[in-house]
């Protein structure tokens, strides 16, 4: 009887630990940003992903535009100094401060490599991984729980390389 109880409690401990560890990595749904950037509005004006995220076609990272790039489009806006969010941009630019965007997607752990260029070259649409950004006023990560099987699933479907070394450095 005593043995059973010990065995059972060990199991409970393991399970509890498992659940705790998994739940601990959950992400908040929305990330607060210094400027309320509106993807929908930009998409409506036919701004393409590539216009701002300028690296994803040729490099591993997609890149986030710097203040100068944002301002280069907005500088001739008539309501630049009136609308709250645009006014912020103007301030950032005049004070030469980079906007400190907060990360929406889970940062890639140090031991992994991910190459945007490779995926784009294989004609994977941005939306496949990022969801329909043009429909989101405020963006959030497409999957709540960013785990390896999410990548693997697609790699299997597309018959891409599934070897560990493809992504693990």
């Amino acid at each position: 009887m005593k043995k059973k109880i010990t065995g059972l409690s060990v199991l409970v401990i393991i399970l509890a630990g498992l659940i705790y560890s998994l739940s601990a990595t959950k992400l908040p749904a929305l990330v607060e940003q210094p400027i309320l950037f509106n993807h929908v509005r930009h998409a409506e004006k036919d701004v393409a992903c590539y216009d701002c995220h300028q690296y994803y076609k040729n490099y591993a990272v997609a890149g986030i535009p710097d203040t100068e790039l944002c301002y280069s489009c907005h500088k001739s806006d008539k309501d630049l100094k009136e609308k709250e969010e645009k006014r912020k941009l103007h301030e950032y630019f005049t004070e030469k401060i980079e906007i400190e965007w907060n990360r929406v997607n889970t940062p890639l752990p140090d031991d992994l490599v991910f190459n945007h260029k490779r995926h784009v070259a294989e004609d994977i649409e941005c939306a496949e991984c990022h969801g329909k950004i043009e429909d989101q006023v405020e963006t959030k990560q497409m999957v709540e729980d960013f785990k390896m099987d999410w990548c693997i699933e697609c790699h299997q479907k597309e018959e891409a390389d599934e070897d560990c070394l493809t992504c693990h450095k």
Partner: peptide
């Protein structure tokens, strides 16, 4: 995964 040290700063530019 607990050992992974997560990057604090976002990757603004490619490290080439």
């Amino acid at each position: 995964g607990r050992r992974r040290k997560e990057k604090e700063e976002p990757l603004w530019v490619p490290k080439v």
